[in-house]
């Protein structure tokens, strides 16, 4: 497993040094959220009601922007060829890269969300729930996104195609991410929706690397 953690460490180090990608994602997150009141009007009651949905959708779109780089540069500079010769199975290579993406993109976006909640007059009491759902839900974003990133490594118009492929896969995460937040206001609490959100992330963690590795093997040819 040393090779696995070495790869995770390298990807984190690259993400930190490149910096720009994360900065772009965070900036995109901010501007999408800031555009919403301009389109919907400054009614604070309306905004606070739909804030969780806006934040989740903006987070998905921002994460989508950064998915492309999971495999693309490694494919272009020949690193993927070397990965294919490692004792570490390609499934675990894909898992390591998705994990690094979650650590460097999913977590920062989730941490930024409450700050943006202020712009939307989101009730302060929902901040912990919002952050919890995002932290638990974003692994699905990275691991399902890795499938799309792997499928479009060689594609023309990769970015647009990636959105078309990946966004439908995010539907369950989005639905349950929101459902946890709305359930937290009700009497029954967040229990079941939160567990289902976790389950979706776990399924994605299992399924994503398998499908991504299959897609990468096809493109190594």
């Amino acid at each position: 497993m040393n090779a696995f953690w070495t790869l995770v460490g390298r990807d984190i180090r690259l993400a930190v040094r490149e910096g720009g990608a994360l900065g772009t994602a965070l900036g995109f997150f901010l501007i999408v959220v800031a555009m919403m009141p301009l389109g919907l009007g400054p009614d604070l009651n309306l905004l606070s009601r739909i804030a969780p949905g806006i934040l989740w959708i903006a987070l998905l779109l921002a994460a989508l922007l950064s998915l492309g780089r999971i495999f693309e540069t490694d494919y272009e500079d020949g690193t993927l060829d070397v990965f294919a010769t490692a004792s570490l199975p390609l499934e675990l290579v894909a898992a390591a890269k998705a994990l690094a993406h979650w650590l460097t993109t999913g977590i920062p976006l989730a941490l930024l969300a409450p700050v943006l909640g202020v712009l939307l007059n989101l009730d302060v009491k929902t901040y912990p729930v919002l952050m919890a759902t995002m932290l638990v839900g974003t692994p699905a974003v990275s691991f399902l996104g890795a499938i799309g990133a792997a499928l479009t490594v060689k594609a023309r118009r990769g970015g647009l195609l990636l959105a078309l492929i990946v966004l439908p896969l995010y539907v369950p995460t989005l639905i349950f991410g929101i459902s946890v937040i709305s359930a937290s206001a009700g009497p029954s609490g967040v229990g079941s929706s939160f567990l289902i959100l976790m389950a979706i992330s776990l399924i994605s963690i299992a399924l994503g690397p398998l499908a991504a590795a299959a897609a990468l093997r096809i493109q190594l040819q």
């Binding site: 390298r10 180090r13 690259l14 040094r17 490149e18 500079d77 690193t79 060829d81 294919a84």
Partner: peptide, 13 residues
Amino acid sequence: HVVGHGNGVKANL
């Protein structure tokens, strides 16, 4: 070892 047209070198390392 496979050395193809790419070098597998990361510019930021």
